[in-house]
Amino acid sequence: MGKTRVSNNIRRLRFEHGEMTQKQLAERVGVTRQTIVAIEKAHYSPSLELAFLIAETFGVPLEDVFSHDPDP
């Protein structure tokens, strides 16, 4: 399975925010649950707008959610 070079801490952040479910996060940012699953597994890199929305949902800066791995 192809992984992107963008890793993320969404799973940890969801846990730290009252064990938010993937569905709840998806509803808050306006995407399907499958898209959140794909982002969490690093199979899909979200658009910049969606990335900011996710960071805003958790109330943290973008770099606390996503990071770039030159060698995944």
Binding site: A26, G30, V31, T32, Q34, T35, A38, Y44, P46, S47
Partner: peptide, 9 residues
């Protein structure tokens, strides 16, 4: 569909 198509779709 619980939500319309998003950017990944």
């Amino acid at each position: 569909p619980e939500m319309p198509a998003d950017e990944r779709d």
